[in-house]
């Protein structure tokens, strides 16, 4: 699946033909997609599909063998990506021995976010009870919330989150989805998700990835059409049909 330069220019952000190899293993092969302003794009694929590798290549944290990143119709060089993109990797534990409030304040300051922004996030994410605790002593769910807070404190127009709902129960997941949706008017998002039911609930469009190759890109309806399925097919059925 390829998109022309003209296509990239209509969208806000896009990448063209990104490939990445680890030795002889091809992790990504000619991956191209674009992000429409204000949308949530879901990177869907099984473990090992290349989702995290793709996000790290886009963020400039991994070298890609080929490929171009676009922003508002212009090539976005490596050095300028940090102005446009914030990538929150999976399973980071920043300054684990520090109190949560110290870490949150550090990221608030470096992102030039206001205290009101931080307070709002603390309230919405239910972090008040753990603010004075070290991050390393928190449960997986609370660690996820802190990571989500760190990501949402950033102010870059494109936010990329790797497995943001991993570790949440169903209620918490729905709550976090609401929170992410509330930020959609301010920024576009790319979410890497391997749980299809969750992805279907929050994402506007989907990029189906398997073994480093793009198998489908579009809304659920467009993917149903591509897979030749009826309107009641869910994302899981679409994914299985296409892959």
């Amino acid at each position: 699946m390829d998109e022309s330069v003209a296509g990239q220019q209509r969208s806000e952000f896009g990448i063209t033909r990104i490939s990445k190899k680890f030795g002889s293993y091809t992790a990504l092969q000619d991956v191209s997609f674009s992000v429409i302003p204000g949308e949530i794009l879901g990177l869907i694929g099984p473990n090992g599909a290349g989702k995290s590798t793709l996000l790290e290549c886009v963020a400039g944290l991994l070298t890609a063998a080929t490929g171009t990143v676009w922003w508002q119709g212009r090539i976005l060089p490596l050095k300028k990506r940090k102005q446009v993109i914030w990538y929150q990797p999976d399973a980071t534990l920043p300054f684990a021995r520090q109190r949560v409030v110290t870490t949150l304040t550090f990221f608030r300051k470096i992102h030039c976010a206001s205290k009101a922004d931080l307070n709002r996030l603390v309230r919405l994410l239910g972090l008040s009870p753990v603010l004075k605790k070290p991050l390393e002593t928190l449960s997986k769910g609370f660690r996820r919330r802190v990571q989500l807070a760190l990501a949402l404190l950033s102010r870059q127009p494109l936010l990329m989150l790797d497995e943001p709902f991993d570790g949440f129960d169903i209620r918490q997941t729905l709550s976090m989805m609401d929170l992410l949706r509330s930020y959609r008017d301010k920024r576009s998002m790319i979410l890497s998700i391997h749980q299809l039911t969750e992805a279907e609930k929050i994402c506007n469009r989907f990029l189906l990835l398997d073994q480093g190759r793009v198998l489908g890109l579009g809304t659920l309806d467009e993917l149903r059409t591509q897979a030749g399925l009826t309107a009641d097919a869910n994302l899981e059925e679409v994914f299985l049909a296409i892959t």
């Binding site: 940090k82 993109i85 399973a91 980071t92 534990l93 920043p94």
Partner: peptide
């Protein structure tokens, strides 16, 4: 080890 380097490298 903690992954914070990936965050710091994204700063300006």
């Amino acid at each position: 080890q903690s992954g914070v380097l990936k965050l710091l490298l994204q700063l300006r």
